[in-house]
């Protein structure tokens, strides 16, 4: 009985008007949650936490670098799950959501790369080192850009979304291989001289801001995903009756 209700509720999400309504209701709450956790996280990261004994204040970059890196990868995972649902059940709202996830994931990848190389300047003495993690993030960025470019190149948005979903899954198979091969490559070409210090052995007082920032990036991703999906839905259904009724009422 209860399962039946859950199943029906899940199927309802495939209907554009209900999905639209859900995005409309959820998105402000997610944005509010993001704002709160961001403020708390930034306050801890910039004021409360004392400087690191090895890296002084430069380690504070960690509080945006690590959550962004996590979210860039978690975003890819979310996108892949949506892509599987889109390819197997051909639900249009999930196709739209998978496509909306790509630019947000790419944005987090850019944050991760930029802050990583800025952090590298005082620590390694150079903006770019062919560090395994940075290099695989760079490759991840190109996968994201490829997905966005492929989707944008199609006239027929539904066909474009399906083809891009295949590319998402190809990328999903490849990302672990790429990461492993790049790690192998860097350990062969350079000694273990370059590595982040103090990341694995973290003091307990350094953790709360990290957790708050991770929560904040997760909420940001979800909120932006819902907003972007809703926009894409409006764009694709602009000639349809339900959109006209919804927006026409507010004229």
């Amino acid at each position: 009985m209860i399962w039946q209700k859950i199943k029906v509720g899940f199927h309802k999400l495939g209907s554009p008007p209900i999905f639209y309504r859900l995005c409309q209701v959820l998105s402000p709450w997610l944005w509010a949650g993001f704002a709160v956790s961001l403020v708390i996280g930034l306050y801890y990261a910039l004021y409360v936490v004392p400087p690191d004994y090895q890296q002084s204040d430069s380690f504070r970059i960690l509080y945006i670098h690590v959550p962004s890196a996590w979210q860039a990868m978690a975003g890819y995972l979310v996108m892949s799950i949506l892509a599987v649902i889109a390819l197997v059940w051909r639900i249009r709202t999930t196709e739209i959501m998978a496509m909306a996830a790509a630019p947000i994931g790419a944005a987090f990848t850019v944050i991760c790369l930029a802050t990583g190389s800025i952090w590298g300047r005082p620590m390694w003495g150079t903006f770019w080192a062919w560090d395994a993690r940075l290099t695989s993030m760079l490759v991840l960025l190109f996968i994201y850009l490829g997905i966005m470019g492929l989707y944008a190149a199609f006239e027929d948005k539904r066909k474009g979304a399906r083809v891009a979903c295949i590319l998402i899954l190809v990328g999903l198979v490849n990302i672990p291989i790429i990461h492993f091969s790049v790690e192998w490559w860097t350990t062969l070409h350079q000694g273990r001289g370059i590595s982040f210090v103090g990341e694995s052995t973290m003091d307990a007082s350094m953790k709360p801001p990290l957790i708050w920032m991770i929560v904040a990036t997760k909420l940001l991703f979800t909120a932006a995903l819902l907003d972007r999906s809703r926009n894409e839905l409006i764009d694709q259904d602009r000639r349809k009756g339900w959109i006209r009724r919804k927006l026409g009422a507010s004229v």
Partner: peptide
């Protein structure tokens, strides 16, 4: 901060993209 330039540039990039 020490390394203030690096810290604030990173946070600025984060702020712009967010």
């Amino acid at each position: 901060f020490e390394f203030a330039v690096f810290v604030w540039t990173s946070y600025a990039i984060f702020a712009i993209i967010v």
